[in-house]
Amino acid sequence: MEVRVSGLRVGYENFQLQVDQLYFQEKRISVIIGPNGAGKSTFLKALTGLIKSPRGTVFIDGYDLAGLSSRERAALVSYVPQEHSAALNFQVFDFILMGRSGHLHLFSSPSRDDYRKVEEIIAYLGIEKLASRKYMELSSGERRIVLMARALAQDSRIIILDEPTTFLDLKHEMEIVEFLKKLSTERQQTIICSLHSLDLVPRLADFLVMIKSGRVLAAGEMPDVFRTELLAELYDYPLQVIETEGRKIILR
């Protein structure tokens, strides 16, 4: 399932995001980077349908996103927010189970099949220990994993994540990166996410999009785009990409 963007314009009073042509291939990890306030979150929300996109600007697997009901949209794309602010402190199992709700009728509760699906995902992620705890008792790293589990329960081919590693320590950052790669290779998920820390980009991205002040500065295969000149221009800062032992490292 691929995502195609053409002539997208969304925004608020003093900010507009403008994406003319962009194509996210299926089964790949696409990463969006850019300075704070560049429009990364807005872009992701427009791809998820959380911000209304005008007709004929965002297509998912050929379907015009603007023409889909929330239920149809949820079957195609799931969204992992940066943080979940809990009003009620649910048990983690129930919290993940909520991902199944798009499939359910207004008056029905999750069925045995829904439970089985969630049990499967919990086993796949190896988070059996978390399942019986309460969401608010989890560490922020654990919460991210649980949020992703909920997105997986939704059973959509495309997962969109808003800065999944922000505020995490080194180890948990890497856990999330490994986990996303696993999803893309083992489950053939199409993944689109924004990243805050540049160090992770070469480890994670197949495809890279740079956004600056609401415009796409560059987009392409990660090795082609992750270059000193482009990054320095993107962040207005004289940083440098060097390669040692076959890995790209940022110097600033």
């Binding site: 929300k45 998820t48 349908g49 959380l50 009901s69 929330s70 239920r71 949209r73 949820a74 079957a75 794309v77 799931s78 969204y79 927010p81 979940h84 602010s85 009003a87 009620l88 649910f90 129930d94 909520m98 991902g99 709700s101 798009g102 499939h103 359910l104 207004l106 008056f107 029905s108 509760s109 999750p110 909920r150 939704q154």
Partner: peptide, 23 residues
């Protein structure tokens, strides 16, 4: 009968919509 729905509606609006509800 709607109590499960009420659970999901207790998430913030964006999350509940992303899950597929007409919030």
């Amino acid at each position: 009968k709607m109590s499960w729905r009420v659970n999901v509606l207790s998430l913030n609006e964006d999350e509940a919509r992303a899950i597929g509800l007409s919030v």
